[in-house]
């Protein structure tokens, strides 16, 4: 009896759960096979190191001796006793606050100019995009260093108009602004994203607005801008995070010093100096986590305020 029912159950079961479990088993197996490279990389090269650097940020570590736990010392030093950290924060925030809005305004203005199917669009788009593509390389930073040198191109052009320009790069009052100009020069990629966004706006909205006699300016503020807010939001977040992470231009322009008088000391450059110049790995890890915190707070804040100004199509 017992064996019969058990046998019955066994005989009945495989039909359904057997196939199901085989499906799951095979599916999981294949899934994790394909996921394996990423999973190893994620655990070994991203998550593990991230946690390790969180731990290191509470230590004193010079690579030679093993890390010595110092509690909050690194963070306290940052907040109270490190003038260079304060300088790096100031420089980075000025850079972000100036370069991101300027870049986006240029990007939007040119995307608007192109929007109505202008002749030669591929040519202009290529010309404006090229700086974005090349801008991150050392070559462009080298070029910038020459452009804004005392005897550089900018001053040569100014002298044609009888203006005797300063040495932009080596004057702490101006040096940071040369980097802002360099960033704004690379407005091409947000411009392409704006162009794609503009193309999503239904043309009949403009036709209806034209019928009602709405002016171009009114159409811009009432139709284009509101419908473009998701793209503006997106560009704003991405560009801001990128600006916080900028490194190469400040390194090349100041020959790795962040000078003159720390005026081009980007946050990432300071982190680099602490880690690979002075081998203060604990302190540099703390700097990295503060950067994460800044970016996280900024991103969270952006998303929280987004619902008050970003228009989402329901």
């Amino acid at each position: 009896m017992v064996s019969f029912t058990a046998g019955d159950a066994v005989a009945r079961r495989p039909a359904k759960p057997g196939r199901l479990s085989r499906f799951f088993f095979a599916g999981n197996g294949a899934g994790y096979m394909f996921l394996a490279p990423w999973l190893i990389g994620f655990l070994g090269l991203t998550l593990g190191p991230a946690l390790a650097s969180l731990y290191l940020s509470f230590t004193d570590y010079d690579l030679l001796q093993s890390p010595r736990f110092v509690g909050m010392d690194n963070y306290v030093r940052m907040a109270t006793g490190d003038a260079k950290f304060a300088a790096a924060m100031k420089v980075t925030f000025i850079y972000v606050i100036l370069s991101v809005p300027l870049k986006l305004i240029f990007a939007l203005a040119l995307a608007m100019a192109f929007n109505r199917g202008i002749k030669g669009l591929p040519f202009y788009r290529a010309v404006f995009y090229l700086p974005s593509l090349l801008g991150g390389s050392v070559a462009i930073a080298v070029l910038w260093r020459q452009l804004f040198a005392a005897d550089g191109l900018v001053n040569s052009v100014l002298s044609v108009f009888g203006i005797d320009g300063p040495s932009w790069i080596s004057n702490p009052n101006y040096s940071l602004y040369t980097l802002v100009v360099l960033s704004v020069w690379q407005f091409g990629s947000p411009m392409i994203i704006f162009l794609a966004g503009l193309r999503q706006i239904p043309q009949d909205m403009y036709e209806a607005a034209n019928m009602d006699g709405a002016s171009k300016a009114r159409q811009f503020f009432r139709i284009t801008l509101p419908l473009l807010t998701p793209v503006i939001f997106f560009n704003f977040v991405i560009q801001t995070i990128d600006a916080f992470k900028a490194f190469t231009p400040s390194f090349i322009i100041s020959a790795g010093t962040g000078g003159p008088i720390n005026s081009t000391l980007f946050y990432t450059l300071y982190l680099y100096q602490e880690a690979f110049g002075f081998f203060r790995m604990g302190y540099a890890s703390a700097l990295a986590w503060v950067l994460v915190l800044i970016i996280a707070v900024f991103t969270a804040f952006s998303f929280l305020t987004a619902r008050y100004w970003v228009h989402y199509d329901e």
Binding site: F42, T46, K245, A275
Partner: peptide, 29 residues
């Protein structure tokens, strides 16, 4: 593919999109 924990791993993957590489830099080094 369908597999157990897919959306969990996917969310973590998206999370690393925004993570500044500085945070893994030193332990990786």
């Amino acid at each position: 593919l369908e597999f157990f924990g897919k959306s969990f791993w996917f969310a973590l993957m998206l999370g690393t999109l925004m993570l500044p590489y500085h945070v893994t830099l030193i332990p990786q080094y």
